[in-house]
Computed example of a mutant assay.
Amino acid sequence: MNVGGTGKLPMSELRAMCASVGFSNARTYIASGNVVFESKLSESSVKAKLERCLETYAGKPVGILVRTGAELAAVLANNPFSSAAPNRTVAIFLDAPPPADVLDNVSGQQTEEIALGTREIYVHYKDGIARSKLKIPAAGTGTARNMNTVAKLAEWTAA
């Protein structure tokens, strides 16, 4: 999830929310809305339960993006910029496949490289993300995680 819209959300509170809706073994990674847990529910049910909890907490809708451990491993395996610095390469997670015309609607692109994934947009920020002026309209409802974070979450789900 992108916790920017929630106000302050302590990760202990996020873990408690997961437990309250029946998810087990919840672990959070850094204070940016990354949570790994176990559930037998479908992706849509997991998403709906967490979104309801977060809307109650924040007083407004908060979008959630769900990936299984296998999907996280695939994001890593399919990273077209795997030889680039993992802290300068992100996967922007989306609910659905990126639109076919996503690259036609990009603005501000300089040295960044962009590639489309299954339900992700990969971006390699050669000169770093802080200086980038890149705008990808299709990414507006997504949330980005660098490859270091994706690798850690994939590792946790495999354990």
Rank of each mutant, 00 (worst) to 15 (best):
M11T: 03
S39Y: 05
N2K: 15
S32M: 15
P98G: 04
Q110N: 12
V102T: 14
M1A: 13
R52Q: 14
E112T: 06
T56I: 11
T157Q: 03
R131Q: 11
S32K: 07
T149C: 07
K8I: 06
L94D: 10
L54S: 06
F37T: 01
L50G: 08
G22L: 07
S39R: 09
E55Q: 15
D101G: 08
L116Q: 11
R88T: 00
E71P: 06
L14T: 14
A73I: 01
N87Y: 11
K40P: 01
V62A: 03
D127L: 13
M1W: 07
N78R: 13
G128F: 13
L41E: 04
E55C: 13
R52D: 15
S107H: 07
A158I: 00
H124L: 01
T143S: 12
P98W: 00
L76W: 02
G33I: 10
N2F: 02
K133W: 07
F81G: 07
E51C: 05
A91L: 05
L14I: 13
C18S: 08
N87S: 14
M1K: 04
A19G: 12
S12R: 09
S82I: 11
K60E: 08
A19T: 13
K8V: 11
N87C: 05
R27A: 11
S82H: 13
R145V: 00
F37W: 08
L134C: 10
G117T: 07
F23E: 07
V21N: 09
V102L: 08
A16S: 14
V35R: 02
V3Y: 01
R88D: 10
S82G: 10
P80V: 09
I121P: 14
V123C: 06
